[in-house]
Write a protein that binds this DNA or RNA. Structure first.
Length: 108
DNA sequence: CGTGTGACGCGGG
DNA sequence: CCCCGCGCCACAC
């Protein structure tokens, strides 16, 4: 028998929001936390992403930091995330930053 | 219990 | 634009 994982309301909202990010668009950890009604929860969003991406099949690569840069370090995911985003048409400028226009906001 | 640790964010220099 | 410091907060030990 498989146990059903209990997730907090915040976690379930975060999962719902991330799942809704369209192809070719991105959201920041902080923005996701804000829409999930926990403005201070950016770091929690990061942790949720780290632990639930596989189980919930989340488009984890569509989440970057507020500056529009990938937070993963080279050698541990950075290249993979960048390739996935580039494959969806997301553009990185010379300083490895994604322009504001690629950011997406839920319609509520 | 206290202490350290980030897939963060923001303001300053 | 880069680099720091500080605030934040769930979690591992």
């Amino acid at each position: 028998m498989k146990e059903i994982e209990e997730v907090s309301p915040f976690t379930s909202k975060v999962i719902e929001i991330i799942s809704a990010i369209p192809r070719g668009r991105v959201m920041s950890y902080g923005l996701i936390a804000e829409f999930a009604e926990n403005r201070r929860g950016a770091r929690q969003v990061a942790r949720i992403l780290h632990t639930c991406s596989a189980a919930y099949d989340l488009p984890w690569h569509r989440v970057v930091n507020q500056k529009g840069r990938i937070s993963l370090k080279p050698g541990s995911g950075y290249e993979r995330q960048k390739n996935l985003l580039a494959g969806e048409g997301v553009v990185f400028d010379r300083s490895d930053t994604i322009d504001e226009r690629f950011f997406w906001r839920p319609l509520w």
